[in-house]
Design a protein around this nucleic acid. Sequence first.
DNA 1: ACGGATAGCGCAACCCGTTGCGGAAAATAG
DNA 2: CTATTTTCCGCAACGGGTTGCGCTATCCGT
Lengths: 333, 333
Amino acid sequence: MSRVTIRDIAKLLEVSPSTVSRALKDHPDIGQTTKDKVKQVADELGYFPNNQAVNFRQRKSKLFGLILPELGRFFSPDMVRGIEEITRKKGYSLVIFQSNDSLEKEKECITLCRSFGIDGLLVCLTRETKNIDHFQGFAKNDIPVIFVDKVIREKGSARVLINGYNAAFTAIQYLAKRNYQKIGGVFANKNLTITKRRKEGFKAALDKYELSYKEHFCIHGSSIQEIKDHFLRLLKQTEKPDAIFTMTDEILSAVIQIIHEEGLFIPNDIAVISISNGYLPYYINPKITFIKHSGYEVGKTAANLLVDLTENPNMVLQRHIELETYLVELDSC
Amino acid sequence: MSRVTIRDIAKLLEVSPSTVSRALKDHPDIGQTTKDKVKQVADELGYFPNNQAVNFRQRKSKLFGLILPELGRFFSPDMVRGIEEITRKKGYSLVIFQSNDSLEKEKECITLCRSFGIDGLLVCLTRETKNIDHFQGFAKNDIPVIFVDKVIREKGSARVLINGYNAAFTAIQYLAKRNYQKIGGVFANKNLTITKRRKEGFKAALDKYELSYKEHFCIHGSSIQEIKDHFLRLLKQTEKPDAIFTMTDEILSAVIQIIHEEGLFIPNDIAVISISNGYLPYYINPKITFIKHSGYEVGKTAANLLVDLTENPNMVLQRHIELETYLVELDSC
DNA sequence: ACGGATAGCGCAACCCGTTGCGGAAAATAG
DNA sequence: CTATTTTCCGCAACGGGTTGCGCTATCCGT
């Protein structure tokens, strides 16, 4: 059974397809009686418009693309949730692609997005991505691209992320005020902008509170396993930190596991603070204080910006948005 | 700058668009020299096919829809990850929709899917959904629909989920063998098939080990808050369970929080076992034993089945798949 | 009754790649 | 050298909704 088209309705009523088309969208050129008849027949036949045809004609797809390294368990699901929510509210749908943290796959995703004729793109870059030249194709066709969360600082690019500098700063400040002296940090891949910003905030806060930055208290890793290994080694050193800052929930989860496995207690043996989306800190016993950032808000903000850029590219002034975070105090370090 | 079409190439080479089209796909009717020239020019101009036009013509979209109540933090991100992986490997892309556990929104999502002309659909039903009549429209157009995880038992429908009965049975068996006598259970909404199946397994195992099923040791809830409230009340009763089974990670996370807040210790005060995707049990101290199910595997299996149903609807025999789970022993109850 | 305004609708092109069919030129056969 | 096949390519329609433009019929005013 083939689907009902506008021409089927037209034939049945002995009018032209254009009349049907206009009648269905209440075009003033069409008389009320005709409109009524068309709508009634459309209803009876169970007609619904073929978006493929419409979008093809209008040269738009009402689709947004979302490329992200991987659907994780903390930040990204919330972000996707926020993106999907806004996206749909505004009449768009969302196609998702995983780049698996591979630059090559990221480029594949881009090709797919282009061939689908997406109207806008949200991207969370892979850790392999060093520049954003491969997104130039979209600019040429006036298709807006917004970088989210894992971004690269490049002028002109639209970016939505949290203020990682302030978040890290706030975390260390909290520890410093509680007289922790030997503050360590566990960070993601050294080369990522997200890591750099958070480490800058980390260092600045240490500086402000006259605590020396100790390189061997800071570890970096690109995978959870690497982080676990490095952190375990850190704990085995003769001089151990008395407090640990973790820059993401993923890292926090790794650190927590090692701490438990080593039979250490929080906060007596070691205090822990993290930038977090705000779930994990509640599962842990004792709960830990964290700097709350919201994947959901980042997602919503980015999606709203994308809609604006898509529909009124020239009206949008603020193309770079950093969301602020806040302290959620759950323990008593 | 508008995008390059097949006609642009045709004009440049003074051939017909059809020749270009055929040349680009190595049609035997076209001479080698022409093919080479076409391909070269296509390359120079940065031509890439307009999928919208192609799909419109072929009356297919190479898009799969995925409707789920909400993107959670445990099972569903992994499932989506698996779906996206297979989907893309097989040449399809994935559009996601959130129904927010509302039947009305679920229907909205269906309308969107239909108007997009998706080639196949994966659905995780809302808790409000009592029947699947509103999916009939897809059947009429030979568009396969697969129900995933949260399904409704209805003959003829394609379903992929875990064997919740066996999973629950295994969990209770584990507790019974360790001589827990007063086993409680925390379940989701009573009316859901997923809940019923797991509770059946729960009861069956109690029965096998001659442990009486106590209604007041079992609680149900539709939201995390509701579950927390009920569970807290359970703990305040004079007769408390000595072990608790939780049917999902979401529920486990709620239960864990209450246990911690009440200052109870696992497993001495109360043992805990859960069906889990396998992350949360590691964050908790002490780690807890769980029945491992895999959102990732469910996603991959469902996506593979969907591809099969889409491409060879008549070849597929097995339209109902239940994945088995296994015990992961982390504690020493 | 006649000129101009307006309401109501149809024609046909358009978006872009695909494909059945037919035709001309070249190659091969006889 | 003619007849037949093969090679290579173009024409035109298709898919389904949209839209600029033009045409006719009715209406109003004078």
